[in-house]
Write a protein that binds this DNA or RNA. Structure first.
Length: 900
RNA sequence: GGGCGGUUAGCUCAGCGGAAGAGCAUUCGCCUUACACGCGAAGGGUCAUAGGUUCAAAUCCUAUACCGCCCACCA
């Protein structure tokens, strides 16, 4: 039936058929099986912000390979699916959608907005799961199996974690200088700020003395913040300013009198050596301000607008204010210099808006004590990194960890489970209207009630006027619990006991700190052990020029379009084969073509097999395996051995490429070609048996990498070879215990070499491929000659030789073109007239090469240092090569003589 | 300012101590009934530079140059 099928593989119907089938039959479901060891991966849950991109495709393909492979090794392999609510990022998506309809979230209110968010979660979550399914992921997508970072069970985990940290005093509320994104309207943690070089200016501004005399000149990149300056600082060692320290200067435009102070943190060499101090809007300034008891003036609001400043600037944007302040300073004669200056500017990792350091009351988690066990685990390699290079930065980051700001002033997320009493002072709160923010502040000394449900009444005064903290938790707070929350923690479930710790976490390095480090810390904190044995870190998929793919650059490649165009297996092949050493990969669409061609090759092998398969093959054919049979079996054995070794080292690309090259370059190009004539003889069933045997194992070996085409082929072969319903339930091919048949390998390779030599002659002398020629094979090595003679049909077939003669006489016949291969002289006899010049050229060229080789060997063997220091095996190798080469040279010389 | 990676064939990258490899591209010849998404053959590299270690270095070490990432409160 396959006979009638197209010569090229059509992935679409195959993929939709199997992906549906796999789900319907629950092939990827996992059950607790105490007799088996588990192999577990929890998916890095994709944010429900839209469609999956190339990075997701790579990340999930790699996981899928590991899951399928380990399932085939006999482990109870379980890949846990889920999605992440994605906090700010997801809220931004919806806000944008609202905006396109001319609305803001405040117009519809928190409750309605959250309703929309949940609808979006359903819609987008389904899209993502569909895409993962298309990618072929061995995930069980039954609704009850799919986790979400904000579903009820995960909410319980989040509360349990929060409560635990609170009870231990590791979570606290405090007023700090935090990173504020004015566009998202929320605080961010330190690692959520991305720094980017920007061209700017360094403005030199003169602050005159109180009495109007020459004062001090500061340098700044943020002139607009001078409106909030409450001091000027210089280094205590700086002699230039020694006489000014302690004096007062007049702040231009504002007319505030501020002191000149001395602080060690000021760099003498930077700018003018004098630093304007704005404690309300800069972290360093804030610290210096604390040390010197300076006033804090807030001149930038949470909306990113000027406030509490001369009316002229009030309400204006930072950019506008900057421009006007500079103009006004210039007009007033205060601006002394404007230099071009490049510096790095902090931006929001979600919207790339400039970050404002602002003073704000937020929730923080103390990290130092939690980091310690994680550092230990990494150092003792309880958790291992692939590639290892990440171990050091991982540990260093943990060592320098700062407290984590976990509260976010957005609506989408886990609401902070803290309740305040509107009445009493002990648990009380103060509401403060602050622009768009409806901030809550503790009353002095008050403590909130930590509860996941609204408490009936205040534990202190009995009032029922309890208000929940309006903030939500950082999305990474729930992600940090993922490896055990997915199994029902804090409940002590059977799943948790069986599946935790998981086997490997597959992720990109960009979320190593944001996510991986926090999982390790919380794994240690709550489970008492690491959440995964290995962290397998891959690179970033970039565009073909190495640039980051992004919507704004328009250089993104959509994996769905690629799957549609070339097939999923082809895209997976391309991604896997480039995922080398955790390095970034420039990805070009053309690179998928190679994968598509390979998929097509496999498909055509299966067609070839189907075309040659007898309805009722005689199964008990007892035929002696011939050379090519022994050779291919042996090669398969070697290939599987090395593929398994690569898999053990998480070197997926090399595992795949090893099988790929074997399949294409050896099985197809040599073995099948040699098998073809045998299919016309009574040997046929026997040969088909072997072909099926090898090919079905190739298909199994490739299945983790290319699940669809292999499943399809396997299915089409099932009536001949039997086997399980689905490939994933088969056993991964082992390297056969059979002893390596090195003689078969050697003989085969010398025959292959002879064939290549004859083919080269044919190509060079333009002998038409269909024209058969006569060849004489001469050698003094009788044994070698015999070995080849036994399998001379291989040469007949693959080099198109009609008449092959063997002789011990090395003499070159007239009208022959010659070549040398191993111990053989090859003489190709052609009817036509031979271009003797060409032949001579060719021979001389070979001679030159051989002479060089001989010289090289001789030189080495003459070198006493080499003889004394090189290992035995190397010595042997070189002297053997010398012997072989000089033999060849001698034979070639005779041939040359006869040419003249 | 610290740390990490890269520099190998026209392009994208493997190799990481014993005489340079793959895919794509190029050239030549083939529709050889599994596959032109194919088959056969060929051309193409003083492995960034300079030193060093070694009998032997693309491979190890040290500098230099350029490129790229990550981390860091230099205004």
């Amino acid at each position: 039936m396959i006979l009638s099928l197209s010569k090229t593989y059509d992935p679409k119907p195959v993929e939709s058929k199997w992906s549906r089938m796999w789900q319907d039959k629950k092939v990827f479901a996992s059950k607790i099986d105490k007799n088996k060891k588990s192999f577990v991966i929890v998916i890095p849950p994709p944010n429900i912000t839209g469609a999956l991109h190339m990075g997701h495709a790579l990340n999930n393909t790699l996981q899928d390979v590991l899951i399928r492979y380990n399932r085939m090794l006999g482990f109870e392999a379980y890949w846990v699916p889920g999605t992440d609510h994605g906090g700010i990022a997801t809220q931004n998506v919806l806000e944008k959608m609202l905006k396109s309809r001319g609305k803001r979230k405040e117009d519809i209110g928190r409750e309605k907005f959250l309703e929309l968010m949940w609808n979006w979660h359903k819609e987008c979550g389904d899209t993502i799961l569909n895409q993962l399914q298309k990618l072929g992921c061995a995930l069980n997508f039954s609704p009850e199996n799919v986790r979400f970072t904000m579903d009820d069970k995960r909410a319980k985990a989040v509360f349990a974690s929060f409560k635990n940290l609170w009870d231990k005093g590791l979570i606290y509320r405090g007023e700090r200088m935090i990173n504020w994104c004015p566009r998202c309207g929320t605080a961010l943690s330190d690692i959520e700020v991305e720094y980017e070089e920007e061209k700017s200016k360094l403005w030199h501004i003169h602050y005159p003395l109180e009495n109007g005399e020459r004062g001090i000149t500061i340098a700044t990149t943020r002139p607009e913040t001078m409106l909030g300056d409450t001091a000027v600082a210089v280094n205590p060692e700086d002699e230039r300013y020694a006489n000014l320290t302690g004096k007062k200067v007049r702040l231009p435009l504002v007319d505030r009198i501020i002191p000149v102070i001395a602080d060690e943190k000021v760099e003498k060499s930077f700018g003018t050596g004098a630093l304007k101090i704005t404690p309300g809007h800069d972290l360093l300034d804030f610290e210096i301000g604390q040390r010197h008891n300076l006033l804090i003036e807030t001149v930038i609001s949470f909306e990113g607008k000027m406030t509490n400043c001369p009316p002229k600037y009030a309400g204006k944007s930072i950019q506008t204010a900057r421009k006007e302040v500079v103009e006004d300073l210039n007009a007033g004669g205060f601006l002394e210099k404007e230099e071009h200056y490049k510096h790095s500017v902090g931006k929001c990792y979600r919207c790339m808006t400039h970050i404002e350091p602002l003073l704000s009351e937020q929730w923080f988690v103390k990290m130092k004590t939690m980091a310690e066990p994680a550092i230990q685990a990494a150092q003792k390699e309880e958790v291992k990194f692939y590639p290892e290079t990440w171990k050091k930065p991982f540990i260093e980051w943990l060592k320098n960890i700062q407290d984590w700001c976990v509260s976010r002033q957005i609506w989408w997320g886990h609401r902070i489970p803290a309740w305040y009493c509107a009445k009493c002072s002990k648990n009380g709160l103060i509401f403060s209207e602050n622009g768009i923010l409806n901030r809550i502040t503790f009353k002095h000394g008050a403590k909130p009630i930590i509860s996941d449900n609204k408490p009936d009444k205040c534990s202190d005064c009995g009032s029922d006027e309890l208000v929940q903290d309006p903030d939500v938790l950082d999305t990474w707070f729930s992600s940090a619990l993922w490896p055990f929350s997915v199994f029902g923690w804090p409940e002590k479930t059977a799943e948790l006991a069986y599946y935790y710790p998981t086997s490997v976490l597959v992720t990109g390095y960009e979320i190593l700190y944001l996510w991986v480090a926090r999982m390790v810390m919380s794994g240690m904190e709550y489970m008492g052990r690491i959440p995964f044995d290995y962290v397998y870190i891959h690179g970033t998929v970039r565009d073909k020029h190495g640039k980051r793919m992004s919507k704004s650059l328009g250089n993104g490649i959509d994996p769905l379009v690629m799957m549609e165009k070339y097939g999923t297996d082809a895209m997976r092949f391309s991604l896997i084969s480039q995922a080398i050493g955790g390095k970034d990969m420039p990805f070009a669409e053309e690179s998928i073509i190679g994968g598509r061609n390979f998929v097509n090759k496999l498909y055509n092998v299966s067609r070839f097999i189907s075309m040659n398969l007898n309805e009722n093959p005689k199964t008990n054919v007892q035929a002696k395996p011939e050379l090519s049979d022994r050779w291919i079996s042996d090669r398969f054995h070697e290939v599987m051995q090395s593929a398994r070794k690569y898999m053990l080292e998480y070197d997926l690309p090399n595992a795949l490429l090893t099988i790929y090259h074997f399949t294409w370059d050896e099985f197809c190009d040599w073995y099948l070609e040699l098998a073809k004539p045998r299919l016309q003889t009574e040997e046929k069933d026997h040969v088909m048996c072997l072909i099926l045997h090898i090919f079905s194992r190739i298909i199994k070996a490739l299945h983790p990498f290319m699940p669809y085409v292999t499943e399809e082929i396997y299915d089409s072969l099932k009536h001949s070879i039997g086997g399980k319903e689905f490939l994933i339930n088969e056993t991964y091919p082992a390297s056969d215990a059979a002893a390596s048949d090195s003689e078969a390998l050697r003989t085969m390779s010398s025959i292959m070499d002879i064939i290549v030599e004859i083919r080269t002659i044919r190509a060079q002398f333009e002998i038409h491929p269909s024209k058969e020629i006569d060849v004489i094979l001469a050698s003094k090595d009788a044994k070698a000659l015999d070995n080849v003679k036994e399998n001379s049909s291989y040469i007949n077939r693959l080099a198109k030789v009609s008449n092959l003669k063997f002789t011990a006489d090395n003499a070159k016949p007239k009208r022959a073109v010659s070549a040398i291969s191993g111990p053989f002289n090859i003489y190709a006899l052609t009817d036509g007239i031979i271009d003797f010049e060409k032949e001579k050229d060719r021979t001389l060229k070979t001679m030159e090469k051989l002479s060089k080789e001989l010289a090289f060997c001789e030189e080495k063997l003459k070198n006493p240092d080499f003889i004394n220091h090189a290992p035995e095996i190397e010595l042997k190798r070189v002297s053997e090569r010398k012997k072989e080469t000089s033999g060849k040279i001698e034979r070639l010389r005779k041939i040359l003589e006869e040419l003249d």
